[in-house]
Amino acid sequence: MKVRIDDKFAAFAEHWRPKIVAQANGQDIRLVKTKGIFPWHSHADAEETFLCWRGEFRIEFRDHVVTLGPGEMVVVPRGVEHRTASDEEAEVLIFEPSEVVNTGDAEASEFTAPPGIRI
């Protein structure tokens, strides 16, 4: 199935609520709009891959920060504490196992996305 990523991003406005756009081999490909700062968390059993589509997006670790622009990506290793952030709105693709909760081991909050939301 062909997916026009720009059209999918245009279909929603909320921040920090990933939407499943496709699935492959037990992984979700999720789209998320970001603005502000997401809570610190980790995922004990899964790596996360972030690919910046539009804007500037950063992944903050306790000892350094990785800033991504369009077309750049980073893999966060399993078990590594991190948080994500963007000063202005950014659009990001996330590749991770389907069972991963976006807030990882952080306490459930307004940032915790409902599972299984497709776009």
Rank of each mutant, 00 (worst) to 15 (best):
V3L: 14
R4C: 14
D6M: 14
D7H: 13
K8E: 09
F9T: 09
F9Y: 07
F9A: 10
F12P: 03
F12Q: 06
F12N: 05
A13N: 15
W16S: 01
R17I: 03
R17G: 00
R17V: 02
P18V: 02
K19Q: 05
I20Q: 05
I20C: 03
V21A: 11
V21L: 11
A22I: 07
Q23M: 13
A24R: 15
A24D: 13
N25Y: 04
G26S: 05
G26W: 03
Q27H: 15
D28L: 07
D28H: 14
D28Q: 12
D28I: 07
V32T: 02
K33N: 04
K33Y: 00
T34Q: 01
K35A: 11
I37Y: 03
F38G: 00
F38N: 00
F38Q: 00
P39F: 03
P39A: 04
H41T: 07
S42W: 11
S42T: 13
S42Y: 12
D45W: 04
D45V: 05
A46T: 09
E47M: 07
E47V: 05
E48I: 06
T49V: 12
F50Q: 02
F50V: 02
L51V: 07
L51T: 07
W53R: 13
W53H: 14
R54P: 04
R54T: 08
R54H: 09
G55S: 06
G55F: 02
E56C: 09
F57C: 03
F57L: 03
I59Y: 00
I59V: 07
E60P: 02
F61H: 11
F61K: 12
R62V: 13
